[in-house]
Every structure is written in structure tokens, then in C-alpha cells.
Amino acid sequence: MQAGIESRNCAIVIEAAVVAYREDVALRGVSLAVPRGEWLGILGPNGAGKTTLLTVVNGLGRLLRGRACVLGCDVSRGCPAALRRRIGYVPQGLRIDPRMPISVRDVVRLGACGRVGLLRRPRPADERLVDSWIERVGLGALAGRPIGHLSGGEQQRAALARALVQEPEILLLDEPTTGLDRASREEILELIRSAHRERGMTTLMVTHAHRRAAALCDRVVLMKEGRLWAEGPAAALLREEVLDRLYDAEGDGG
């Protein structure tokens, strides 16, 4: 790694990352350093590699070439379970079978399960944390309902609560406001902002088209065709002419 790239102030350092799914190259040599406590927005058209970039951080995606260092650990060849426990992940809209025999509370409690470990039950403190996040995301009345019965937006809230119950040092959010109406979107963004501040987390948030969401970030990176296309403060990059070029005729117009 380059000098200074493993800086103690950086939660995430990725260098020349290449990720491919068979013949499709998703990341084409992406380098990125994210200081601890930063809220980074990741924007770009479909297929730009935004989700793949998140999965490099939590080890669900494997690097073909390049290096990645997360919270001081080299994750280039995979991310150990102990490190994954410190990284919360809200994936983009999961398809959940409406008949799934698992409640909202069970799903949120899942966030504590990695920390609790095998052959142990969650402690009362874990249960209180589960209850408090269920309340904070506004699902108190639905806690006992089957997870598959919730609307897409409500499931998204449950996913956020699950990730926050993990008490992560890094929070990875993949389109967390997709499927939400305007009021819910604002509410969830506010919740993410307060959690980010309270816990001093490093937050990476992929957002497809919500400029409002990206404007809350400390810094924004724009991705296109598997590469970092631009990076800088939100105010400088979220201008009409920049975004028009990002989502140009070659892109999907997203």
C-alpha cells in the first residue's frame, strides 16, 4: 500500500480494487480512503459498482486484484466474522417470502446474534437495545408481525434497526430510502444522521437518485462503469451539469 494509506484516521482504505462476477467486471481499479467518522455518499447510475464497493468493505464481495483495509484489518482475502460484527449492512430491498415464519423483532434481534455468539442467548441488555431501535424506527406497533407482511418501506426500517442493533463502527447503507414516501424518507435520513453522530460511525450510503440524501453527506463520490468518476464535497458535485454528465446518454439516465 502507498505511504500513509493505512493511516490510523482511516476506517476504510481501498486500493486499486478489481472485482468481477465471471466475465462482468464490477469494479475496475477503485481506490478510496474513508476517514473515521465520515459520512460518505456514493452516487452513480445502475451498474456503476456502488453495491459492489460496499460488499468489498464487509467481505461479501471478493477482490480479484487490489487491496482493502477495514478498521485496521486487511480484508483483501475475505473479512473475518469478528470484523463483520463491527460492520452494519443494510442491503438493497431484499425479497422476503410473505409466509416466512419470522417476526420483525426476530429480524432486528439478528443484529445482536453475531456479537452474542454460538450457543448463547441474547442478554436482557441486547433485548432492550432491540426494543429501543424498533421504537426509534417507528415499528413498535408492528414488532410481533411476520416480517414478510410489512410494506417495502417498513421492511427497510426493520433492516436499519437490525444494522444499528449491531452497534457497528461502520454502517453500509445500500439505497436505504428506496420505497419510502417523502415523509418517511426524511424521517429515516434524520434517524441515520442522529445514529451516525451519536455513535461516531463511519457511514457509507449508496443512493441512486436522491440528491436530498446525498446532500447530507460529508463527502460524495460519483461512480460510473466500475470506476470512481469524481469525488468531493456534496455542494460541489451535486450540480445539475455534473449529474447530467454522470447520468448521460451512455448511462441509464437514473
Binding site: 461479501l60 470484523l83 460484527r85 419470522i102 426476530d106 439478528l110 446474534c113 453475531g114 456479537r115 450457543l119
Partner: peptide
Amino acid sequence: FFKEIQAVIFHRELARAVGMP
């Protein structure tokens, strides 16, 4: 292994992401 079974049934990739084997 009830909580592990529940997690894997719900979503194996997510169970992995929260740090379960």
C-alpha cells in the same frame, strides 16, 4: 442453535454479514 437456524432461514448472506458462521 435456534437463533442461528432462524438467521440462516431468514437470509444466509445477512447472517454472514452480522458475523455469524
